[in-house]
Computed example of a mutant assay.
Amino acid sequence: MANFNDARAEGVGLIHFLIRLVVGAVVLAVTAALTPGFSISGFWPLILGAIVLAALDFVAVKFLGVNATPFGRGITGFILAAVIIYITQFFVAGYSVTLLGAVIGALVYGIIDAIIPGKSIM
């Protein structure tokens, strides 16, 4: 029975990850569409951008102890979210954002993340 439960838990973990990835990609796509100075040029840059955002957020949480949520952690979370949105362009071709676009994008991302059900990746 232990093997069945372990396999089931891993399946749930993978499904949870995929759902978070899809929700994060949707939030990122809407953010890019609504934010001046922020563009993503296709499906794969969007998916890679969502993955990189999640990875950079994970690193921030592990090393800084701060979650990059624009509204959940006040000004520190907001600034960190803007920095992560900006830095992502250096890892993903087809993803570009200006510094002002990253700041506006962090605000838009936070608003959309609060509206869309499910926990986003950032």
Rank of each mutant, 00 (worst) to 15 (best):
A9E: 08
G11L: 15
G11S: 15
G13E: 12
G13M: 10
L14Y: 14
L14W: 13
F17L: 14
F17S: 10
L18W: 07
L18C: 14
I19S: 14
I19Q: 14
I19L: 15
L21F: 02
V22A: 15
V22K: 00
G24W: 00
G24F: 00
A25F: 07
A25V: 06
A25M: 06
V26S: 05
V26D: 02
V27D: 05
L28K: 00
A29P: 04
A29E: 07
A29H: 04
V30N: 07
L34I: 03
T35E: 09
T35W: 08
G37R: 07
F38D: 04
F38L: 13
S39Y: 12
S39T: 14
I40V: 13
G42I: 07
F43K: 00
P45V: 02
L46Y: 04
L46G: 05
L46Q: 07
I47C: 03
L48G: 01
L48E: 03
G49K: 04
G49Q: 01
A50Y: 03
A50M: 03
A50N: 02
A50R: 01
I51A: 05
L53Q: 04
L53E: 03
A55C: 12
L56P: 07
D57H: 09
F58I: 03
V59H: 00
V59N: 00
V61I: 15
F63S: 14
F63Y: 15
L64S: 03
L64Q: 02
L64I: 05
V66G: 09
V66K: 13
V66N: 06
N67L: 09
A68M: 09
A68D: 10
P70Q: 02
F71G: 09
F71T: 07
G72D: 08
G72E: 11
G74M: 03
I75W: 13
I75K: 12
I75N: 10
I75M: 14
T76W: 13
G77H: 06
G77S: 13
F78S: 05
F78A: 12
F78E: 10
I79T: 13
L80W: 02
A81S: 15
A81H: 10
A81R: 13
V83H: 03
I85N: 13
I85Y: 11
I85V: 15
Y86L: 15
I87Q: 05
I87N: 04
I87C: 08
T88L: 08
Q89L: 08
F90S: 14
F90Q: 11
F91T: 00
V92N: 08
A93P: 11
G94P: 02
Y95N: 02
S96A: 13
V97S: 01
V97C: 06
V97T: 04
V97L: 04
T98L: 03
T98R: 06
T98M: 00
L99T: 13
L100R: 07
L100G: 06
G101D: 06
G101S: 11
V103H: 05
G105F: 00
G105I: 00
G105E: 01
A106N: 12
A106M: 12
L107D: 11
Y109P: 02
Y109N: 11
G110D: 05
D113Y: 09
P117W: 06
